[in-house]
Design a protein around this nucleic acid. Structure first.
Lengths: 141, 141
DNA sequence: ACCGAGATGTAACCAAGGCTACATTTCCAG
DNA sequence: CTGGAAATGTAGCCTTGGTTACATCTCGGT
């Protein structure tokens, strides 16, 4: 196979689920909520290194899509749907991270790359990564 | 580390290089050029399953950024810069693909996921993948 | 040589993500 | 209890990537 005939493969890459941004946001919100009890616009702005305006509009979309709830000037909370997505994202993220470390790359690289990769791994691949990491690292850390 | 403190990690995810789309396009153009000698808008429209209009505008950007050259109603060609990017993308893509297969996922999944992952692997990770695949599959196929 | 089908181009629209500049709210230190 | 700093909100603009509808060009077959 000299590469070619990917037809629909590409189109599927960008489709489906709540945008990568949505996943990143709910994941971050969940994490912030864990260690700070309250999540505000500014926390996300700092986390993603974007302006508070961008966060604002993104949160609006997330609210529209029922992933979060919030009120003007109020804190940001996750809906059950948002919490579910957050947990799924976190799980993926962690599996990919553990996998990369098991593969032998530096921690910094593993952290970096896992952010980009997590949104593009199918269930099948995720499972393979999990298995691989387990074999290399054992179940613990 | 309970996950957090990724600060700049995310921002770096979307930055740098010619957008993923650019890479996908030059890679596809190069591949088409290999087996058809001529690449036209419609070829890319079919490849990516988007309208010819989208391809048109994307090609304009690629031309603006000097990755391709073309004339109204004419075929699309790669500039040296475009050829370089295409080759680099193809290499990455192939390494990731081989790696996923070595990991043990189905061919279909490997093909699918490699499209999404190729743009998010650092050089370090790519190297690790290459090494892993070589160990599992040997140098040949 | 011509003519229509198919390939391209253009106009105009949409949503997502990003930004700056400016307007409002909040809320705590004094 | 109040003033101002910090957090939020709003308006308006940009780019990318995607669309449909409609205009135009090209080229091969009759």
């Amino acid at each position: 196979m000299t590469r070619r005939s990917n037809k629909s493969a590409h189109s599927r890459v960008r489709a489906d689920h709540a945008s990568e941004i949505a996943e990143d946001y709910v994941e971050a919100i969940a994490a912030i909520l864990v260690e700070k009890e309250i999540c505000r616009v500014i926390d996300l702005a700092r986390e993603f290194q974007v302006s508070h305006v961008t966060v604002n509009r993104t949160i609006s979309r997330l609210q529209r899509d029922e992933f979060v709830t919030t009120t003007p000037y109020g804190p940001i909370e996750l809906t059950p749907k948002g919490r579910r997505l957050a947990q799924a994202s976190r799980r993926r993220h962690e599996i990919v991270l553990r996998f990369l470390k098991a593969l032998g790359v530096s921690d910094a690289t593993a952290i970096q790359d896992s952010e980009g990769i997590e949104h593009h791994v199918s269930g099948e691949t995720l499972q393979a990564m999990e298995k691989f990491a387990a074999k290399r690292l054992g179940s613990g850390e």
